[in-house]
Design a protein around this nucleic acid. Sequence first.
DNA 1: TCAAATTTTTAGACTTACCTAAAAATAAAT
DNA 2: ATTTATTTTTAGGTAAGTCTAAAAATTTGA
Lengths: 219, 219
Amino acid sequence: MLSKSEENYLKAIFHLSVKAEKGISTNAIAQQLDTKASSVTDMVKKLSEKELVLYVKYQGVTLTDKGEKIAANVIRKHRLWEVLLVQKFNFNWDEVHEVAEQLEHIHSKKLIDEMDAFLGFPKHDPHGDPIPDKDGNINFLEKSLLSTIDVNMKAVCVGVKDTSSDFLRYLDKQEIALGKEIAVLEKEAFDNSMLIRIGTNEFTISQQIATNIYVKNKE
Amino acid sequence: MLSKSEENYLKAIFHLSVKAEKGISTNAIAQQLDTKASSVTDMVKKLSEKELVLYVKYQGVTLTDKGEKIAANVIRKHRLWEVLLVQKFNFNWDEVHEVAEQLEHIHSKKLIDEMDAFLGFPKHDPHGDPIPDKDGNINFLEKSLLSTIDVNMKAVCVGVKDTSSDFLRYLDKQEIALGKEIAVLEKEAFDNSMLIRIGTNEFTISQQIATNIYVKNKE
DNA sequence: TCAAATTTTTAGACTTACCTAAAAATAAAT
DNA sequence: ATTTATTTTTAGGTAAGTCTAAAAATTTGA
Ligand SMILES: [Mn+2]
Ligand SMILES: [Mn+2]
Ligand SMILES: [Mn+2]
Ligand SMILES: [Mn+2]
């Protein structure tokens, strides 16, 4: 049974591995976990002895299959808990992450399986992120940033990149939510701001906003 | 924010305090938590500095109001989680304790308040134990041991003293459950075994069984 | 290419929560 | 009232996970 700390390291390495193909650097992990590089080196050695990561000094780490499966399962738990909190316990999507960070370390296979069933086997969490299945497989769906959508095109909001409370509450205020159709009406060449329409509301969003909203093109 | 360990100590002292009026001894706590007396002394000093217990060397500890409130809240969380597991997640009453031991240390006021509402503000956990309210007040209901019920009397099962899996599964097998009416038909003077009837089933139970079932007299 | 900057690792220390073994205090028994 | 037994505390140590500061390796770039 892994400690909370070990699980958090595996999860961090997993998240960092999505984009990178080389080994994940000590510093990157330290930044992700808000800790020091020296602490990372220590932990990475331990995970390596447990055969959860491949580690070559000065060359970063990679998850083994075993480590990847455990990481995916922690993420599965995190996201299922987030769904429960939002769908059954009246949490807003900006309130769930902190509690899910705690709940993801509860050890009980039955609990997570039953919760999955209780929730109707959801495929995505409240932020649009895919929920890994029991075997750790993740269904990454194709999605684009709203900023890449051409003028006069429509797209459906399917996720968020930034998940900070500030950003999520801004989206609430503007009534931007998963599943909403967004029409791109104008793009300002100077600052890449966009005029968009959601329902009958038309308003302008900055590039920073547009690069933090994931959408799926309407075919 | 208290550590898991600190919360477990407060909970243990709380449980031990129900019966005892003197200070709770170091040894008693050690036994309850399956640890060593020397470890207890260390922790009790720390809790004393935080004003969660009153501690006088060689004279045991007592919870302060602050400590008692925290302990009651941990117990509140434990029991509410047990209700959730049984009522919503198909756990049997012998399967919930271990997971609840983990879940009781999740810190989120909103989570527990919402869960309470979601469950319809239950007053008792799956074992019949009362759930403390938000302020830490516990409604101890009057209850007797089945072994004290006279022949030809009826009583309703309202709780269990032993909560081991073995015992709870024995009760399942015999279809003894909370809310069931038990009629005492005969008592054997030699070994204090009892012939009882539940519904249409008649069978004998040993004294050991009868002293681990709480009942409420039918008036 | 080789010196400077950056990254990573090592060395040594700290905190929490444990432990064992010995000392001190209290309680029990002669 | 002492001696004996038990309980409790102290002293010193361990393991996990963190930190700072210094050393070593790697990368950058003049
Ligand atoms: Mn999250
Ligand atoms: Mn999420
Ligand atoms: Mn329990
Ligand atoms: Mn219970």
